[in-house]
Amino acid sequence: MSAEKKKKIIIDFSKCVGCHTCELVCSLTHEGIVNPSLARIRVINSNWTMMPMNCRHCEDAPCIDACPTDALYHDEDGAVMLAEDKCIGCFMCAIACPYGIPRFNEITGVMFKCDLCADRRAEGKEPACVEACPSGALIFEDVNELMRLLREKSPPEASTGIECPSGASTLGG
């Protein structure tokens, strides 16, 4: 059996500069307005160490276990999704989640959480926050895959200067 690639948003804590761009594009993508309090990702300031936190999309997600109406489920990409029509806004998921990710939307009356930008994924794009992050602190990749890449990553100075300007779809340059 091979590694099924389950891409998640991976955080490189050392790179975050705390600019909150991810929050802006998140609320813009999902709600159509710029409003960090409606963003699914939030930058936490812990003694000036800035940490963007979104849903970890756990494999054994406690929120899914806790939901009394089965509104939370794993989709085929491994993302933890929330079916708004089933959600009754009981807050059980928010209590079960160790990171406190699911939050309550006062307007719709149901919970909301990161869905790894389901609409964008369907188009083959990265989640909006990953695309917008100016410092490269957010990476959209399977965690094991990223570790594999890092193990063999050649440092920049070892580069031989071979250019591949025609892009990632060709070998040549």
């Binding site: 193990r151 050649s154 031989t160 990632a168 070998l171």
Partner: peptide, 14 residues
């Protein structure tokens, strides 16, 4: 050598 480097640049260094 250059071929190998070029292929690694397709996105997988491993």
């Amino acid at each position: 050598y250059d071929t190998v480097d070029c292929i690694k640049r397709l996105g997988r260094e491993d």
